[in-house]
Structure formats: structure tokens, C-alpha cells
Design a protein around this nucleic acid. Structure first.
Length: 564
RNA sequence: GCGCCCGUAGCUCAACUGGAUAGAGCAACGGCCUUCUAAGCCGUAGGUUGUGGGUUCAAGUCCCGCCGGGCGCACCA
């Protein structure tokens, strides 16, 4: 996996008690020190030797192949000077032969993975806060498919509850209702429910009617939620986000599998009916150690189920599909809730999915709220980004017609938004800044796309069919070498991202590559290089960079562009 | 009050999971388009990694205590 692992072999041959995992080998902090640096802290500990002593021993006793030009010990580090042509050539050949698979470690080969994400309540147009869930989830889907998992994407449709009941009351003539107006209706419904207890009561009554199986009410609920779901999916599709299956909450109203689960809880005396006739789980009986969050209500006094009950049924259903890995993406506000669910499931011998949390996107004056209409709609945000991108494309690509320009602009807008969200670690709060999120300069998705567009421009002008290897590959500038070693580290980055269930390292990697490439671009003329061998070598470097960046962006759900 | 997450340059974020001189972008200042796309590049300036202890050959990273922010803590979904 590590592109320099081969350098370890002579060392391992010499010290039979050590293995590759006892060493770290990676590009040196800067080129003056060397091409790659060996760290042997773990190995030294195993041999009960001070690290500098072991490094000196290795330098003294181990003989390396001809690809190692020189060695220099620097305290606990051993710095290698390498034959860059040999390594660079190997990197490029690897990238250009594995193509769109370059970077994949195939760690999910033969395994299935089920992921649930987004699952926005079907009551209004999604806001950018919710979109964080969708983008994080969707990129994980892409990451794990890249790693050869068989991935199924589920979306839980919360088509029940008082909120939906209220909305149904507001939506008599659904036909004439544009999707974006549903938010206004929803906000109005919630305001009315606040001030008018009768109206609020009507919401509950409608819900009860729906739960009791009244076909007309069920039809209304379905129509309203379906209308909202369709509208939401259309917005999400603009970001390239799609799902395989939609699971409606109303399907899990009564699930016979939950009788067994409640039975298991009864056996452990972890469930009781309280003085108000509600069915409650006492989590302290099954491993919960604090007072906070100790009780979990399953059923109301009237026998209707709570959200958490239906969600348990849904989870049992999902887990029953037998995927090797089960994930769900949740806002951090669901942390305790997910832990409670996992405890209940564990008590009944049922497995629980692995949760991936993300923190909220906040407005400058606090949290977004769909109920209060205090939101930035994803659709508006996309429109604005598209408009700004279109202005830019119109300046840049004057020879293209408007339709072509707009197609590019939409992809640039998506890149800006997805990248801005995905490059930040998921458990970091984000304060939404309209200007910063719509910037196309600096460390952004469009900057990465721009690097690719420049490469494409060079390769177009090159004119000839692209070579895949060169027998006279040569590297004579540091920026070429830095770029290539960065490219070669892509599989490790992907492995890290998959292990952490976090795509942010891939975004950071794409930026690092783009920066390394632009330094190379300014320093090394490609088409006007000094010799045919150098032209060919640099063309290969460009092609390898394009392939790597394209693959990294694909994981983030961002398209590479021919030009922009 | 209790639990979880976060705190790194004026601002937004990195830092190969404990390793060499803590790196990018934005904002500021100074350069670079008759040469492969200036959505760019080069340079200057900007840091006691919130704070006080501890562990270690080595701490932004691990442990404990404070301070500040976010989220949550039974009949919402």
C-alpha cells in the first residue's frame, strides 16, 4: 500500500524479528533533508534500543538496491536519496494502468454495506444544514463503492407524526402548490398550532385517524409526503445525490419482530408500564449508567407507538438484510438517542448499525429551524452559486454557447458547495458564511476543477495520443518529484478515509495535489520542455495528475471538467 | 447539574492518529499575463496550539482540573 514499502525489504531481511508495521516510511518534511524518511521508533522499542542507535545500525549493516543513491542518518531518522526516475516512472505507470481504479485498495471486495442517510422529514424544502447529512452520506457511498463494497443506500421517510398531520391540514389543494411554497405552509401550520390549541388538537386527531387505518386519511398523508419527498429528491439530485430504497415509517407501525424484542426486555425487567399507562424502557437495567436519558418511552397511553418504537422496528428490518457493514449518518443531536437504541437492541441480542455523526451548520444568529422558517434553502443556495458561476464562465469561455456555459456553471456550483462542506471534519460546527461558501478562489472545489481544466488544455494541445509509459522517464525538478510522491500516496489517503468513515482527508488530498500541480505548472513548461524525453515525461505527469484528481473528486461527488 | 463534541495565525480550516522547523486558503502588503487558462503563481507579515498541571526520549495530539462555544438529557420526529 505504501509506495515506498519496497525499501523496507532489505531491513526486514536483516532483522528477522521485525515486520513492516514497525516502520514508517514517507516523504521527508522537506526536500533538503532527503527524498523519503524512515522512522523506526516502534522497531527500536522492540529491539530495546535507542532509535538513533538502530538508525545507525541500519545505515551500517543493511545494503539497499541501486535505486537508493545515498543514506543520511539524522538522529532518529534515516533519510534516503533515491533514483527519482525509477520511482517516478513506477508511480506514473501504476496510475495510468489502473485508471479510474487508482487509489482503491479494494478493501470491501465481496462485502456488502448498507447505509442510511439524509432522511429529511417530508415537510419542506431542505435547507443547507440538512444537506450536510446528505453530502456526507453520499460521499461515503461513493468512497465505499470505490473500495469495492456492494453498497445499498436507504432513505427513511418520516411520513407520520403530528407535524405531518398539521401540514396535511394546510394542503387541501395540493395540485396548485409549488414545492417551495410548502415551507411557508409548514411554518404557518406551526405558528397556528402555537396560538390555536384547537388546530393543534386537529393535527393529533388526524394522525390518530391515519394510524387507525382510515384509507382516506392515509391517502392524504401519502400524497402530501410523496409531494414533499419528490421535491426534496429533485433538489438533492442537483447535487448528484441518489438513493436505492425508500422506507416509509408508516410501514413499521406494527412489527411482529418487536414483540420478541419487548419480550427480551421483560425478561431482564427493563420494561414497565408507568402510572400514566405508557410503555417505558428502563435503560439502567441494561447497561445505561447515568440518570440522564435513563428512560425511553415506546408506547403512549392510548397504545399508539412513539417514533423511537417505529425506529427500532425499522432498524431491526435494516439489520435483517444482513449487510456486512451497516452505517447511518446522524446529526449530533441524535447521539444519546442512537446510544439508547443500541442498548435496547443489544439487550435483545440484536445488532445495531454504526453511527456517523456530524455537527450542525449554524447561522450567525443561531441554529436553523425549519419550523420557524429560519433557514437557508439548499435550492436557493444552489441557484445563487449557479448564477455566480455562470457569470464567471461567461467571461472565461466566450466561444461556448449559453447552454454549454450553463452546464459548466452548474457543475462548478456543485463543486463549490460539496467541497466547502466535505473538506471540514464532520464533528466541527460550521457557522454558515454566505460569501465564503460561494467563493471559487483559494482552497475550493472549483480550484481543483481548474487544475484539471488546465491539464486538459495542455493534453489537447499536445495533439498526439497519450503515452502510458516511457522508457526514458526523467525527473529533474523538485516540484515534479513532490507532485508524484503526493499522487502515489492516494491509496493510503483513501484507506484512512474509509477507516475513519470520513471523506475530509480526500478533499484535503485533492487540494494538496492541486497545489503541487500548480507549482509544477508554473515551474515546468510541458509542451515547450527541453527535449522529447522531457516533454513525454511531463505529459505523463500531467495525465497521472488528471487521473488522480478525477478519482478523488469522484469520491466527493464532484465532476472533473474538460474546460472552465 | 450530568454526558458527548469542539477550541490551532485577525477569519475559515489542515497537521500522515505520539515524532524533525505547526501548514494551506481568505483578508493585508509587494511582485508576476506578447510564454501550456491570472478561478493562478512567487514573496512579506501574521503562533506561548483557550488555560493550569501531569505522563513520555518526544505532546496541538494522551490523562486530570479550570475557561469559552455547540448538542443532548421520558410521552417531538
Amino acid at each position: 500500500m505504501n509506495p515506498f514499502d519496497s525499501l523496507l525489504q532489505p531491513i526486514l531481511d536483516h532483522y528477522s524479528e521485525l515486520s513492516a508495521g514497525d516502520f514508517q516510511i514517507a516523504p521527508a518534511p522537506n526536500v533538503e533533508m532527503g527524498d523519503v524518511a524512515l522512522r523506526a521508533f516502534v522497531a527500536a522499542k522492540k529491539l530495546k534500543m535507542p532509535p538513533p542507535k538502530l538508525i545507525a545500525d541500519i545505515q551500517e549493516a543493511v545494503s539497499f538496491g541501486p535505486e537508493v543513491l545515498s543514506l543520511e542518518a539524522a538522529g532518529p531518522y534515516l533519510n534516503f536519496r533515491l533514483d527519482r526516475n525509477v520511482f517516478g516512472n513506477a508511480f506514473v505507470a501504476d496510475i495510468l494502468s489502473t485508471r479510474e481504479r487508482f487509489g482503491s485498495n479494494g478493501s470491501g471486495k465481496g462485502q456488502s454495506l448498507l447505509i442510511e442517510h439524509t432522511s429529511i422529514n417530508p415537510n419542506a424544502s431542505p435547507h443547507v444544514g440538512r444537506a450536510r447529512n446528505a453530502m456526507i452520506g453520499d460521499s461515503l457511498v461513493r468512497l465505499f463503492r470505490f473500495e469495492s463494497y456492494e453498497v445499498r443506500v436507504h432513505y427513511y421517510v418520516n411520513d407520520m407524526g403530528r407535524q405531518i398531520g398539521l401540514l396535511v391540514l394546510m394542503c387541501d389543494d395540493l395540485e396548485s402548490m409549488v414545492f417551495d411554497d410548502v415551507l411557508d405552509a409548514y411554518v404557518e401550520a406551526n405558528e397556528r398550532a402555537e396560538s390555536d390549541p384547537k388546530f393543534a388538537e386537529q393535527g393529533y386527531e388526524l394522525l390518530a385517524k391515519m394510524e387507525s387505518g382510515d384509507p382516506e386519511t392515509q391517502r392524504k398523508f401519502f400524497e402530501v409526503t410523496e409531494h414533499c419527498l419528490k421535491g426534496q429528491l429533485a433538489v438533492l439530485a442537483r447535487l448528484g445525490i441518489e438513493y436505492d430504497e425508500f422506507d416509509r415509517e408508516s410501514k413499521y407501525l406494527k412489527d411482529p419482530r418487536l414483540d420478541a424484542l419487548v419480550g427480551a426486555l421483560e425478561e431482564r425487567e427493563a420494561v414497565f408500564v408507568d402510572e400514566d399507562k405508557r410503555l417505558v424502557v428502563d435503560l439502567s437495567k441494561i447497561g445505561h449508567t447515568r440518570d440522564e436519558g435513563r428512560y425511553f418511552v415506546l408506547m403512549r397511553a392510548n397504545g399508539s407507538s412513539m417514533y423511537g418504537y417505529r425506529d427500532l422496528a425499522y432498524t431491526v428490518d435494516k439489520m435483517g438484510k444482513g449487510a456486512d457493514v451497516n452505517l447511518w449518518v446522524l446529526g449530533e443531536d441524535h447521539k444519546l438517542y442512537a446510544e439508547q437504541q443500541a442498548l435496547i437492541l443489544a439487550a435483545a441480542g440484536e445488532p445495531a448499525p454504526e453511527s456517523i455523526y456530524y455537527a450542525y451548520i449554524l447561522l450567525k444568529d443561531g441554529k436553523m429551524s425549519t419550523r420557524q422558517g429560519k433557514v437557508i434553502l439548499l435550492s436557493e443556495f444552489l441557484d445563487e452559486a449557479g448564477r455566480l458561476a455562470a457569470e464567471r464562465v461567461a467571461e472565461q469561455c466566450t466561444d461556448l454557447d449559453t447552454e454549454e456555459q450553463n452546464a459548466i456553471a452548474e457543475k462548478v456550483a456543485v463543486a463549490a458547495i460539496r467541497f466547502a462542506i466535505l473538506r471540514i471534519g464532520p464533528n466541527k460546527n460550521v457557522i454558515f458564511d454566505w460569501d465564503a461558501s460561494l467563493s471559487f478562489n483559494g482552497d475550493t472545489g472549483p480550484y481543483v476543477q481548474y487544475s484539471i481544466a488546465r491539464i486538459n488544455s495542455i493534453l489537447r494541445k499536445y495533439g498526439k495520443p497519450l503515452p502510458e509509459t516511457s522508457d526514458k522517464f526523467l525527473i529533474d525538478v523538485d516540484s515534479e518529484w513532490s507532485l508524484l510522491t503526493k499522487l502515489a500516496s492516494f491509496p493510503e489517503t483513501v484507506a484512512t478515509a474509509a477507516r475513519q468513515r470520513n471523506c475530509a482527508p480526500v478533499a484535503q488530498f485533492a487540494l494538496d495535489v492541486a497545489h503541487a500541480f500548480t507549482s509544477f505548472y508554473h515551474e515546468c513548461p510541458v509542451l515547450a520542455a527541453g527535449s522529447d524525453a522531457q516533454i513525454e515525461s511531463r505529459i505523463l505527469i500531467c495525465a497521472a495528475t488528471r487521473q488522480t484528481l478525477t478519482n478523488a473528486l469522484a469520491i466527493l461527488g464532484i465532476e472533473a471538467l474538460e474546460r472552465m
